[in-house]
Amino acid sequence: METDQFVERGIAVFSNWGMFGSVAVGFVMEGIQREVYELSLIGVAAIVIGFLGHLVINAYFGRSFSRGEAGLGLATLGSMTLLFTVAWLTSGLTKTSVWTGLTLIAALIVTGAIFLATRFGLKGAFSQFHGRGARGGPR
């Protein structure tokens, strides 16, 4: 039954990100390509909503983020920040691209920080990055 729960939660998480993730990627890409910051903002909002949806799924299944999910999220954020910084410093990004990148990174960091702070408290937030099972520990 543990595996069944894992599969069900995983499908729910992938469905959530399949919906909001594709909307987010779409609007961010279109915003950058068409130089329309408002379009990019919709994409950023979709990512935040997707994150909130992930939290709702976690609450429904009584689990927290798995180690893989946390690692993937942090790695994506880290590489995105790195790529954005390098691109900003080495090439001439357009104004919309810069603002989109900054908004996206800020939104992700703020959302993640608020989640950790409200869920575990400021002190306990950092201890969540270790000592949990690969399939997500109980809440």
Binding site: I11, A12, F14, S15, M19
Partner: peptide
């Protein structure tokens, strides 16, 4: 996976 595919279809 039908559930995931349903969401992708809707999007």
């Amino acid at each position: 996976l039908g559930a995931l595919q349903c969401v992708l279809l809707a999007v």
